[in-house]
Amino acid sequence: MTGMMRIDDRKGNSMIFIGITGGVGAGKSAVLSYLRELDGVRVMLSDEIAHELMEPGSDCYNRLKELFAEEPIWLEDGHFDRPALAGVIFSNDKKRELLNEVVHPAVKEYVLNAVKEAKKEGLFMLVLEAALLIEEGYGEICDELWYIYASEEVRRKRLKSSRGYSDEKIDSIFASQLKEAEYRRHCKEVIDNDGDIENTIASINKALSKYKE
């Protein structure tokens, strides 16, 4: 990407742990792609961590196997049928809470261990993206939170174009997520991703600049 920021020095020797969040369609992936290209930066996705922790043989998997043994969400090889699992948990609040009570603490424990390892390695920055970053209390773990902003109009266009979502589905998702004011209240930095990628990169570089000597 053009406009790539060079990170040669940083203030102090402590690793920076950044949490990234924002509404669906805000374009978090574009921000993460840019950050991945920077030297000394590692990006983690909470969804990928959760998927790893839910693989057969893990403690997390074994607990879910007991809780959801009677649900039609299992493939022949023992793995979760993820579309079927999504259908179950998003149609039943109690079952979604059961899943979250198992998976979310396991993800947080994984993240805390990853932070310790990253500090030992001397990384400049560790980045975590999570849809429920604020709700799950990651503000207490991260050095700061970043809110990836895009207007509802832009987000709606993106979701229709990239995922083929209907207005009804988009309205339902928007209603289930935090409002913009709540994101801004919890997040120290706002990355403007409402326009073209160059403006987004400029917004990221501005947020990073305070860590430069």
Rank of each mutant, 00 (worst) to 15 (best):
E189T: 09
I73R: 04
L145R: 06
H51M: 07
Y34R: 03
V154R: 12
R63I: 05
G3Q: 15
I7M: 15
F68M: 12
L132P: 08
D167M: 11
V31S: 03
K94W: 10
S14D: 15
S162N: 15
I148G: 03
Y183R: 06
D81R: 10
E144R: 13
G12L: 03
H104R: 13
A106Y: 02
C187N: 09
S151R: 07
V115L: 14
L159G: 01
G22A: 09
R184W: 00
D77G: 14
N62P: 03
N199F: 01
W74V: 14
K157H: 04
C187T: 14
A207H: 01
E101S: 10
G3C: 13
G164K: 05
G139P: 04
E182N: 06
N13K: 13
I20E: 01
S14T: 11
M15Q: 03
E76K: 15
N193S: 11
L208Y: 05
D93G: 08
R10W: 01
Y149L: 12
F17A: 04
H104W: 14
G12R: 06
N205Y: 08
K206N: 14
L53Y: 07
M1E: 07
M15G: 07
E213M: 09
N13G: 06
L112G: 00
E121K: 13
G139S: 02
I148N: 07
H51D: 12
Y138K: 02
D59P: 11
V115H: 09
D196L: 11
K206G: 03
K95S: 03
M1H: 14
M1C: 04
D192K: 12
E152G: 09
L35T: 08
P105H: 14
A50S: 10
D171C: 09
T21D: 00
I73F: 05
F90C: 08
R63Y: 02
L98N: 04
L75S: 01
G195T: 11
Y34D: 02
